[in-house]
Write a protein that binds this DNA or RNA. Sequence first.
DNA 1: AAAACTTTCAACCGCGTCCGG
DNA 2: TCCGGACGCGGTTGAAAGTTT
Length: 247
Amino acid sequence: MGRQPCCDKVGLKRGPWTIEEDHKLMNFILNNGIHCWRTVPKLAGLLRCGKSCRLRWINYLRPDLKRGAFTESEEDQIIQLHLRLGNRWSKIASHFPGRTDNEIKNHWNTKIKKKLKLLGLDPVTHKPIEKTEKTNGNSSNKPDNDDDNGQGTNKVSPRKDEEKPEEIQLNLEETNDLFSNYHMLCESFDLDSWLNQGANTCCSSSYSMEESNKSSMGETNSTIQQDSLKQWVDSVDSFLSWDSFIH
DNA sequence: AAAACTTTCAACCGCGTCCGG
DNA sequence: TCCGGACGCGGTTGAAAGTTT
């Protein structure tokens, strides 16, 4: 009774993309645009499902992607947006030009969550974590009962803190500072105006086909746009090569 | 030097939503 | 109004890279 799978998986390739596949997909999209993801792999000569192609394009091949680490201010903005929007990563990503929802989600799960916990804040509610350690006398002030730590790795994470109580002291002092800084930031940050500003200037990770076609494909067929696309294709080769090297 | 462990992030999966017939 | 196909989103996984012991 369940849904049909998005595609017939028999004979379809999975896993990391190769440089040839990237080139095929990129060339196809640049030449034809995207009208239906389901047909893209067939027409592009790829043994992938449409979903996989879409994901690869959005998260890796899109021309407007910004690469590199998140800045402090980006992190702060993510925290603010998460406070308002929750785990709506695509909404959050729409305020960061060139960032994908997947990227932001990953960054949240691997870095920001920990940061907030260090600040004594619940990453879900952004409120101070109940100081149960005071009341329940469960002396081990394990900062993170690391419920999650993603892959349920709470098995070993507290090891260092437990072994080095003097470091806990330092961390707690730092945490207090960070905590007050965080609240100052929250109070001073004008999210609404920032959101409005962002909404005008940013593009979302859910890069729409029309947008894609207009901006990347040059709906006007202007030669200028074609040239800049060529330049982009050339420039993107460098990281594709690098990518294949990694793979 | 090597094994054990942790972190990162690309990719997958399944569900919800949208939209056309 | 209902149904089915396609897209988009968020959660999760797992391999590779990095770090510690």
